[in-house]
Design a protein around this nucleic acid. Sequence first.
DNA 1: ATTATTGTTGGTAG
DNA 2: TCTACCAACAATAA
Length: 296
Amino acid sequence: MPELPEVEHTRKNLERWMRGGLLVAVRTSDARIVRPLEPGTFIRRLQGRKVETIERRGKWIRLGLDDDQKLFIHLGMTGWFEHGAGAVASNPLMNARRLGQPLRFERVRFEVMKAGRRSSIVYVDPRRWGRMVLSKQEISTWLELGPDPLEEGIDPKGLSMKLARRKKGSIKEALMDQRLLAGVGNIQAVEALWKAGIDPRSRASALDVADMSAIARGLRWTFRRTLADLARPKKGSKNPFCIYGRKGEPCPRCGETLEGVELGGRSTTYCPGCQSLRRSRGASVNSPRARWGARS
DNA sequence: ATTATTGTTGGTAG
DNA sequence: TCTACCAACAATAA
């Protein structure tokens, strides 16, 4: 599921379902997901607590509880939440699913009493790469996250200065570095770079402030787009993205055939026609199209 | 059967 | 001690 837009969508859902609610029961037997706590300890420390805040930073969600504990949640690659009427006090008129039986790949279940109604919030995660870390302290992964693009905005100048110091690595890998900017994953990086017209293989240190401004616009554009797609009543097509997963198809902007390359161990789609490779700061125009055009 | 998948992390080599 | 690289984690879909 999750990059920043999906996690923000999840955060909003959790806020509607849980904020101000009481955790009347918690169920899990998954020691992997709730590590380092044992499931029994995890459950005991959560039951009876009230959920006061639901925040997000990058791909992490943090629930603030009334006793100062915090529950840090990461959805991994395949985690999501389901919500439905609880086993008790379920009203047949309620416009909510009934989640009485355990779901396939259910890992953690929260029974929440909120505004006099009881409901189930179920964490489902087939691959079990997600985590729920319960702690009174902040955790290092959260503290080490870079600025959140939605909460704190994107600072092209600051990013550009940080990138200048990177001796190696592509801009695409840099964008996925959670310490630089929190929340950008493979898809959003691919889409934003396409929007910005920048070849993902460009050295991170070769980008100037104007390039970073274009990337910032590209990121805001793809976040908004993905968020809007998630908010649609029915889930849209299987691939709502412009170029991600479309290698071999024509570029929606210039018609050139989209190509694929591997960067940072992840498949990367780009358009050789309208995404230009930055070779060094300043001298930026070096697109195949520009060269081809100049020759003819 | 084979390959690829929206993400971290822990181990190892340098 | 710091960084880069990569296998591992697990289940599905094409």
